[in-house]
Amino acid sequence: MAIEQGIWKISDHPQKLKPSALADEALLEDQVMKDIAILNSDWLLIGRQVRTSYDKYVDLLAMDANGSVIIVELKRNKTPRDVVAQTIDYASWVVDLSDSDIAEIYLEFAEKYSRPHASLDEAFEARFRTPLADITINDSHQMVVVATELDASTERIINYLNYNAQISINALFFAAFEDNGNHYLSRAWMIDPDENQERAITKGKKEPWNGEFYTSFGDDRPWELARRFGFIAGGGANWYSKTLSMLSEGDRVWVNIPKTGYVGVGIVTGERCRADEYQFDTEEGPKTLMEMGLTQKYPHLSSGTEDETAEYLVPVRWLHTVDKAHAFSEVGLFGNQNTVCKPTTPKWSHTVNRLKQVWKIQ
């Protein structure tokens, strides 16, 4: 289904802005270089016009907080089917890139385009507040085709690859508009990018999701407060809070503190809510954490913050918890930077089974 985009100026008589041709997609590429959020605010740009081993050039390479590599290809003057085929071809090259290959790609990119961070390690930690050494680079990859429009046949192909072949390829449509000499861009995803991220193509073996949710609880957050009042949390950027929306009442979550270990399992009892607004039951009636005077113990908690950067929580009824000193950690357990995810690797089933054994959970 073709996507039509429009922008209206709000007034007593709404006016539709005049569409203008996106004459040169290199201009769009230049804008993305200045702000990757034009494509996705949860990505880090790591390469531009990256030469492959068979002498072709990938328009843009990006990375997310899990180390997943994103191949971004602009349609330019290629036919819709050609650009999809070429993007998949580039993915066949990306899948074999080593950590050092990707680090080298970023080094060349940073030097050529005078990026603020000289190395991939520096850029990654500055962007995601997590050391690159703590994640697995290029364990999965995604593909994105950027175009002003695609034909119906190509859209059917992309949908088939996603929903039938479980291949993570998406389309991002841009439209340009003009108003009294001012120029604007609008964008629309063909498929929800969060869904696409879940289908990221992993190198390892996949298996059906076992129905158990993984949760990463940042080591800079107050785990003892979370144990006491019953919640999991994330925030500071959309990347860290949006996945909390995946949870519904009755879901079971297993909580891992990165670099520490697994510390709890519980049942979700409510929906995601801003942490400064959620009311807990106390002996003095319903109160927020702020009303209980706990902001000093919870430095991420503050009111008046914009929704995108606010702290969010999901209430949980704990089945079993331990303090950080008794966290369970051993070789072979699953780990991930997403605040919440639905893992489909054999390692996740192994992790849940081990935790059930250790904590005697039925």
Rank of each mutant, 00 (worst) to 15 (best):
A2N: 14
A2T: 12
G6H: 13
I7F: 06
Q15R: 12
Q15T: 11
E25F: 07
E29S: 08
D30R: 13
M33T: 05
D35A: 03
I36K: 04
N40G: 02
T52Q: 14
D59L: 10
L60Q: 07
M63T: 01
E73F: 13
K75Q: 13
R76I: 09
A85L: 15
I88C: 11
A91D: 08
S92P: 02
W93I: 06
S100Y: 14
L107I: 05
E111A: 10
K112D: 13
H117D: 03
H117G: 00
A123N: 03
F128R: 04
R129M: 11
R129D: 09
A133S: 15
N138Q: 06
Q142M: 14
L150V: 10
T154Y: 08
E155D: 15
E155Y: 14
N162S: 13
N164S: 11
I169T: 08
A175W: 09
F177M: 04
N182T: 12
H183S: 11
H183M: 10
Y184V: 03
Y184N: 02
A188I: 08
P193W: 03
T202F: 04
K206W: 05
K206H: 09
D219S: 15
D220H: 12
R221F: 15
G230T: 08
I232W: 04
I232P: 01
A233V: 11
G236S: 04
A237G: 09
N238K: 11
S241N: 15
L247G: 00
E249W: 03
G250E: 08
D251M: 10
N256H: 14
I257S: 01
P258E: 05
G261W: 07
Y262W: 08
G266S: 10
V268F: 04
T269C: 01
E271A: 11
R272D: 08
D276T: 02
Q279F: 06
F280H: 02
F280L: 08
E306A: 08
A310C: 04
E311T: 07
L313P: 00
H326A: 08
F334I: 00
G335H: 13
N338S: 04
C341N: 03
R354F: 11
V358R: 04
I361T: 05
